[in-house]
């Protein structure tokens, strides 16, 4: 039997807007397997971000249940939810949401420090090196390009070793080349650090890099497509992805990418 790291049952989120009720999510049943890389696509206002927020415990559903890593989120109070998020979920936002006063290193280790855990410096160094941020350790977010900031945000999400990475339009503010770089890195990083990724995008090209895509429209899931259905994924992609002069070669990392 498959273990679903994320599972939603009849998930609904309704908003009152004047006399109207907006159904952001209208009965979503959705599952994600461990270490799966899933892209949720949909038009603006389709409910994809709302779904991601519900999974991450950032918002409360009107009805239905969310199970993450075997735990029902509705059983947790606010504090437990925050701690759960800190330990089990990593967020990557479209606007990076780095803390502006902290340098890259401090931003990356912030969730670990908040958790009161000892910082594994070797592990953080490995992540920074992996994401090509080793020479930006002491840079403040304001000194970084959009791509670099997003890589720093990914590093922060990965550093606390969460089970799941939730990425809300992580390439929304980036150009095409940087977008591909970031998604490539995200995919490889997830593989390297054994994490499940749920990614939101409205860009089909980006979505095609996932193991599975889920399309959402008007608050309902309308389509699931696996990479095996013929859509190109990182596993069967030819060649490498240019990333700041480095080349990612699929063959070096088994079923993923590896830096050269």
């Amino acid at each position: 039997m498959d273990f679903y790291i994320v599972k939603t049952e009849g998930l609904k989120k309704y908003y009152k807007l004047g006399n109207n009720t907006v159904k952001a999510l209208d009965g979503v049943d959705f599952t994600v397997k461990e270490r799966e890389f899933v892209a949720i696509i949909g038009r603006s206002g389709s409910g994809k971000s709302t779904l991601l927020h519900m999974i991450g415990g950032l918002d409360v559903p009107t009805a239905g249940e969310v199970y993450v890593d075997g735990r029902r989120l509705s059983d947790m109070n606010r504090e437990q939810l925050t701690v759960f998020r800190r330990r089990r979920v990593g967020f990557v936002f479209q606007n990076y949401n780095l803390v502006p006063d902290l340098n890259v290193y401090e931003n990356v280790v912030l969730p670990i420090e908040l958790d009161g855990r000892k910082i594994d410096r070797d592990y953080v160094d490995e992540i920074l090196e992996f994401l090509q941020l080793e020479d930006k350790r002491e840079a403040l977010p304001g000194a970084l390009s959009g791509g670099q900031q997003q890589r720093a945000a990914i590093a922060r999400a990965v550093a606390a070793r969460p089970a799941i990475l939730l990425c809300d339009e992580p390439t929304g503010n980036l150009d095409t080349a940087a977008s591909h770089d970031v998604i490539g890195l995200l995919r490889v990083a997830a593989k390297q650090f054994q994490q499940t990724v749920i990614l939101i995008t409205h860009d089909n090209d980006i979505a095609q890099m996932a193991d599975r895509t889920v399309r959402i429209e008007d608050g309902r899931i309308v389509n699931h497509r696996n990479a095996d259905d013929g859509i190109m994924t990182g596993r069967n992609m030819h060649g490498g992805i240019m990333n700041g002069g480095s080349v990612l070669h699929p063959e070096k990392a088994g079923d993923g990418y590896a830096w050269e």
């Binding site: 502006p100 006063d101 902290l102 340098n103 290193y105 401090e106 912030l110 420090e113 908040l114 350790r137 002491e138 840079a139 403040l140 977010p141 304001g142 000194a143």
Partner: peptide, 24 residues
Amino acid sequence: RGTYDRSGYRKTRRGKIFPRMALE
């Protein structure tokens, strides 16, 4: 974002996280 948009480099600070963030 007003003064939030700081650029440049800054040495990593040591010490406990909350006093450090408050001082920040």
